[in-house]
């Protein structure tokens, strides 16, 4: 039994979620290899992950933007050697892995939150209102992993790095055109220890800047948002936390002016400590909050900033 984990990266850093996916792969009970389709530095980083016994490195530029068609062709070419193929359930893995699954005639097991055995997995359904235990009868398992449900592996490895991908015939049906990436000096949303999220009640980009960002910077938090705040254009799309956005599970999640719709809760209810600040004491967010403050955010946040000290 050998599992292949597809590394997730942004061209510069190996994601935290990759390490956690290695943990999920380890639970399958066999060897774990990692495929890095990207720069050599990332392959080196992957070789140091605890529990990894080999790193496959495909350095061809064709994979630089992780487009689904070349990625799937690469992975399918390597699949013969593996009993399971896993990727973090980020937008890259969600994009290319189902393509791999279909090419292998396998039913993918999406966004697992637990491994019960080599063929049995837990996964949330209905926006996390239920958890299904599913058993796969496919010979090869193709799995995306909800990384927040797993710890990063302990220890450091020193796995050999082996080049792969020579002579893979790459489909030429899609081309990268442009990207507009959100630049921020704050921690990345999914790996952050503290997240502060704003909802519709913030009312504008300026209010996010004036009320949310300074607090985030004081406590080293990442900033998230509800769908309503993203739809309204207050913050970029990649800030969305929820069923159909990012799933986070920080030590501390602070929800400000967010009502607590099930779709939002699906993305943050596994946080260790939840704080809700909302002026409506009936808001559903309070039903999951460890600490609730019924207050107008425009009065409470400046006070919070001061109370946090310099």
């Amino acid at each position: 039994m050998t599992a292949l984990v597809i590394a997730e990266h942004d061209g510069e850093h190996l994601s935290d979620a990759t390490a956690k996916t290695v943990t999920a792969a380890t639970k399958l009970g066999g060897d774990v290899h990692v495929l890095v389709a990207g720069p050599d530095a990332i392959a080196q980083a992957a070789s140091k992950l605890g529990g990894v016994t080999k790193v496959l490195h495909a350095g061809d530029d064709a994979y630089a933007k992780q487009l689904a068609e070349p990625m799937a062709a690469l992975i399918v070419g390597l699949a013969g050697d593996y009993d399971a193929i896993l990727a973090p359930a980020g937008t890259d893995g969600k994009n290319f892995l189902p393509r791999v699954a279909a090419l292998l005639d396998v039913m993918q097991i999406s966004a697992i939150t637990g491994v019960e055995g080599p063929d049995t997995f837990l996964r949330p359904i209905y926006a996390g209102n239920a958890v299904a235990t599913v058993k796969s009868s496919d010979a090869k398992k193709v799995i995306t992993v909800q990384a927040t449900a797993f710890e990063a592996p302990s220890g450091e490895g020193s796995a050999p790095v082996e080049p792969v991908g020579e002579g893979v015939e790459l489909p030429s049906v899609s081309d990268f055109v442009a990207e507009e990436l959100t630049h921020s000096d704050r921690p990345e949303l999914q790996g952050a220890k503290i997240v502060i999220s704003g909802g519709r009640a913030l009312g504008s980009t300026e209010n996010f800047e004036e009320y949310i960002f300074p607090i985030a910077d004081k406590i080293g938090a990442a900033v998230g948002a509800s769908r309503a705040a993203v739809d309204a254009g207050y913050v970029p799309n990649d800030y969305q936390v929820g069923q159909t956005g990012k799933v986070v599970a920080p030590d501390l999640y602070i929800a400000v002016g967010i009502s607590g719709a099930i779709q939002h809760l699906a993305g943050m209810k596994d946080s260790k400590v939840i704080v809700a600040i909302n002026k409506d004491e009936e808001a559903p967010i309070f039903s999951v909050a460890d600490y609730g403050l019924v207050a107008d955010l425009f009065e409470a946040l400046p006070k919070l900033k001061d109370a946090l000290g310099a």
């Binding site: 980020g90 055109v177 990649d238």
Partner: peptide
């Protein structure tokens, strides 16, 4: 809509 922001591709 990708994890880092927006990406445009031609199909």
């Amino acid at each position: 809509e990708v994890d880092g922001g927006l990406q445009t591709i031609a199909l």
